[in-house]
Every structure is written in C-alpha cells, then in structure tokens.
Design a protein around this nucleic acid. Structure first.
Lengths: 357, 357
DNA sequence: TTGAAAGCGCTAACAT
DNA sequence: ATGTTAGCGCTTTCAA
C-alpha cells in the first residue's frame, strides 16, 4: 500500500519480505569480503580462488569454494569492470541512413550467429543502431567510455564515420562486410563478387547472351562487389556490352530499374539482379510487359530470402551464409580480444537453382 | 612492428603517439579530479556541477563547466554505476525454443521501435536471446548482477521460466505480448483477438458461412488470442460449427493443417489463418487441390508481412503495428524506471484488404 | 556554499 | 602461500 518512489515491480505481490525468515533470503548479494570471512581467509585469497589464480593452498581453496556455494556468491561485474577496465560486453553497431532497414531479416540472422558464439562466453551483447546522428553519438559514447571490450561494425556506407570512430577507440574491431573506401584489417564478408559471377555464368551457361544487371547501391561494398562479379563474368565470356541499371536494394528501385532496362535494351534475354527484393519488383514489371520468365527473360537474384521460393516463378538466386557470417564475426572478435591475430574471412556463396533461370 | 599481447587494433598506423604533442592528445580520459584541479575547486563541487545539483556558486559552476569543455571530460559510466548501483542499460530478452526464430523480421521491427525511444536517453540496449538454457542462464546472470536497470520480455511461451526470473530480479519489467498463464502488470500487446475478429467478420460480411481456421501455437498468447477472436466472431454471427486445425506458425504446419482441413471439411468456403507464413503454405495446398482463391475459398492471414503483397493472389491480412509495439515497450519501461505507474497497452490491429478475401 | 572523507566491490602490486 | 594496502572513478554523507 505504500507508494514508494522506486517502481513497484513485483508481478504477484504474494510474499512480503517479513514473511520469509527461511534460509533462502536472496535479497542481498554477498560480497567477496563476506565469502572471505565465511571461509576464514583473507580477501585476496578468496579473490585468487574465484579467478582461479595460483598460490592458494588446497585447503583454503576448498573452503572458499564452499563459502561461495553456501552464500550463492557471484562477483559484481561492475566492480570488476572498474578495477580491470574490462566491461565484459561487446557491441554490435549497424550503420545505415534508414533505421527501418534494420528490420530486414538479414540482421536478425547475423545476430543469431553472433549470439551463438557469445553464448559460450560471459560476454554480453550490446546493440547500437547507428542509423541517425544520435545513434552515432551513442556509439561514440560507448567507445569512448569503454562500455564495451570489442566492436562489430556492419553495413558501412561510403566513407562511413563509424570506421574512424572505431579506429580511434583502440578497441578490437571486426567488420561485417568490407566498406568501399578501404580494406579493414579484420573482417568477415560473403563472397559477393564470386556469387555474382556464379549467377552470371549460370545465365551464360544456359545460353543467354544479352545479359543485363540491376545493381544494388554502388556506394556499399556488397553492391559494388556484385556489380564487379557481373562485369567479370561478361568479360571472361567476351559477352559485352554490359547493360546495367542501378538500384538501391529496395523493391521499388527494382521496378524502376527493370522498366528503364526494358526501354533501353528491349532485346535483353536475361538479367542478374543484385537482391531478391529488387527481383520481386522486376518480376512484376516483366510480367506487366508481357515477358515470360524464364522463357523470354531469365532472372537470377541474390540473397536467397525466405520469400524467393514463393515468387512466380520461384527465383533462382545466390545464397549467402548469413548466420555463419555472424558466427565468424563473433569468433574473430573473440580471437582479437584474446590477443590473437586472426585472418580475414570470405565466406562462400552458392547458386540455388529454381525456375526463374 | 612490435608484437604486443594486447591486440593491435589500429586500422591505419599512421600516427605514433610521440608524433603528437599538440593540444589534441585524447589518449587519456580525464577524471573528475583532473577537472576539479583545473577548475580550482574540490572534487565534490565538480561532481555537483556535473550532476547539476544545487549548492554551487555561479562562479565555481562556470569554472567547472569550462574545465569540462577544455578537457573533454565525460564521466566514467562504470565508476558511476558502482557508486550508484544503476548501470545505464536495459535488456531486451527474447524467449522461445528456437534461436532461429529471432531471425524473423518481427523482432527487427520491434528493436527499431525500442531503439527509437532509447535513443532519446542515455540508456544502452542489451540483447539476450534466451532461447537455449544457456541463454536463460545468461539472462539470469544479467538480472542477478543488476547489469541492467530494466527488462523487456518478449514472446514468452506457456509457463515460461523467464517471467519468474524477471519477477525475482525486482527490476522494472515490461512484457511484449501477454503470456497465457497470467496477466502481467505491465505489458504492451497487439489486439490479436480483435484482429482475428475483424478478419473473421470480413469473411462473414462477404457472404462466407463455412469458415475454418488454422491456429498458431495455442500455448502462446498470440496464438490463443487469435483463435478466440475467430470463435467469438462465429458465435456472434451464430455460425457454428467451428472448423479448426492447429498449426504452429510455420509454413509447413500451414500446409499440413490445410490438407487436413480439406479432408475433414471439404465443404469449407473460407479460412482464417493465424499467420501469413502459414497462409503461404495453405495457399499452395489449396492451389494443388484445384480450389481457386478467393473464388472457392477465401483466405485471410495475420501479420501483414512484406511478402503478403506478393502471394498469389495477394493476401488479405491483419496488420499489427510492430514498430509501435517496440516504441511503447520502451516508453513504458522508461516510465516504470522513472517511478511512474503506466497502464498496460493494447495496440489496435486493422484489416488490409487485398485479393484473397 | 563548500570540502574532507568514506565508501561502492573488486583486483593487483607488494611485502611477508 | 598468504595477507596488507592501494587503488579503479565516482557519489554522498557529514561536518564546517
């Protein structure tokens, strides 16, 4: 009945504090001193046991362990952080101009991967959506204040300020994907260029000769790499001229680009599209223009989204191991934090053949 | 060239420490004592200014402010946390048996919403995927150790242990969605029951009389609520008997359920399906069985996923404001942490009419 | 209004 | 092997 300033957060107010005088009264987190007292040893001894450092007699070690168990002691991470200057957390920062972009399933998959490896450790995961200037400022705070022991950076655009931020922090940094303007020392990337080549070569192998492309944002690493893969495949096969129309990974841009492509190069017999999302838009435009797929025009997408199986016709596309990407980012960061010097990683992509090409 | 134990994390090793003797030498984070010294005041005075507490003369206040600016002082959050027992972070925990589930766009959207409101504050966002027992243990750690000042809990199943965990932590907790077994004091939910009624009533209004349903997991709040909405609409219209077949929100379960439904109730003229994902599977089964949509069978889904627009035919479905859900969860948690007593919230859903019904 | 001093809970250097 | 002693950087009594 008392109205306290602190929010009343019990879900079910069934037990009052006084009711329980039993052994289990976990209101108070025991401290290291209490453990030491209970075990009849000095605090440093207790500390040594807890961080299993050497120089502790077997007897004392066991006494401390018992006390820890009895008291249910858990070291206070904040105090430890203050003393060691290590906080026990890493941050995953996602760049981008549009916050909503983060809602794409891609990031969720990456997080699942990252989480899978972090789960094996005692590190916590902080998430920063550095999509607004406010978001960037927050990341800056986190890095400056060392609220994290390591950083993962994703989907940087052009000359993204985040790279500089992370660099200045002198924290271990791993990049997810390579920015355009420089090659980070530590990164995990999907083989976008190779995947695009695979896709284009598949078009070539199935007899197409007038192969167009709709690119993603060319100021992003992935967009540029996929475009280069297309160009390479064409060059190797001696199949110019290239027919390209830029998009920005959105469905609408896929529609617009396909429309323009149809105007500019009515003779095209196939198109490699740098994302499934754009491909969905492009398929609709093709249908509206009376072109059959894959009869008149073969289409290959990129990403292998869940929906790619259900387009009409089902989309042939390039699969990239997104969850593995997250896992490897996590592993690489752990390696870095352990003082190792891991190699950058490029994960293979593969073609998933369905009906559209 | 020196190989240190600490990972070398500079991206571009262009400047050596000695090179810069200029004003900008931000290697060392200034401490409060340094600010105080620079301003010629005591540490407590400086502290008061920084936390804009009263009892500081105008002169000193300004001196401190100048020193802060000069030195680029930022309080150390860890030290502050140790002293105040408030860490400046909140945790978003997602329950569920399958980690991969988190990859669904739903959670990304929620996070975008949560982030939008957290961005206005100095709070950091921690993410815990409590999908494995290890994940649950981590959440337990975080709560026990007070590594967060507040908790948001999502998609709890049946009698999820997370609820108890959060309760015992005595931290402010808000639920995203309502668990089945109890009604939390603070929650934000979408109007699942209302949405299901809307959907079913639409079927009724367009002349359907033999209306079936494919439910989601009935041990989840959303699944159960949508089923109840269907039942209510039928009851109000006097349109029994109900034709229901349980699913679990996955596409495969949608296929299976639709197949069984067609066997059990070959006369059905419409079906309300508790998720778009299941609806995709069901549409395929209907097509395979030669039933036209919406001619023979009208179909309404739930969620309004991005893909719902592109099914064949485009799916009529119930839209829920997912990003707003995240925002309101964030707001509610802030209110709780500020010592207020916010009301639980149910966000409206609405029917999006496309071609399938 | 002001400053001194005592913590917060832990780690680590040092002496024994 | 063990304990003592300083911190880590901040907040917060308390006395002046």
């Amino acid at each position: 009945m008392t109205t306290s300033v602190r929010p009343p957060t019990k879900l079910s107010g069934q037990t009052r504090e006084e009711d329980v005088m039993a052994i289990e009264t976990p209101r108070h987190q025991p401290t290291l001193d209490e453990v030491a007292a209970r075990a009849g040893v000095s605090r440093s001894a207790a500390s040594r046991v807890i961080n299993n450092a050497p120089h502790v007699s077997r007897a004392k070690r066991e006494a401390v362990q018992r006390a820890v168990l009895d008291l249910g002691y858990v070291p206070n991470p904040t105090a430890r952080a203050l003393a060691t200057n290590q906080v026990g957390a890493v941050v995953l920062a996602v760049s981008g101009d549009n916050p909503a972009m983060f809602a794409e399933p891609f990031f969720g998959q990456v997080i699942v991967g990252v989480n899978a490896v972090l789960e094996q450790t005692d590190l916590e995961l902080m998430l920063v959506l550095a999509t607004s200037s406010r978001g960037q400022a927050k990341l800056e705070q986190v890095l400056r204040n060392r609220q994290a022991d390591g950083v993962m950076l994703m989907s940087l655009h052009g000359d993204d300020p985040l790279a500089g931020l992370a660099d200045r922090s002198h924290l271990p940094v791993v990049f997810g994907g390579r920015p355009l303007t420089f090659e980070p020392k530590y990164y995990v990337d999907a083989d976008n260029r190779g995947g695009a080549r695979l896709a284009t070569e598949h078009l070539i192998d199935t007899g197409r000769t007038r192969i167009a492309t709709i690119t993603g944002s060319l100021d992003e690493g992935a967009g540029a790499a996929r475009y280069r893969g297309y160009q390479e495949a064409l060059a190797i096969a001696g199949l110019g001229p290239e027919r390209m129309e830029p998009g920005d990974f959105t469905e609408e841009s896929g529609e617009r680009a396909m429309t323009r492509l149809l105007e500019r190069c009515p003779d095209l017999d196939s198109v490699f599209i740098a994302s499934d999302t754009m491909a969905v838009g492009a398929l609709r435009v093709l249908r509206d223009h009376g072109r059959t797929v894959p009869g008149d025009v073969a289409v290959v997408g990129f990403n292998d989204l869940a929906g790619a199986r259900h387009t009409d016709p089902p989309l042939t596309t390039v699969h990239q191991p997104v969850e593995a990407l997250g896992q490897e980012m996590g592993r690489m960061l752990l390696a870095l934090m352990a003082g190792n010097d891991p190699s950058p990683l490029i994960l293979p992509t593969r073609l998933v053949k369905r009906q559209s090409a």
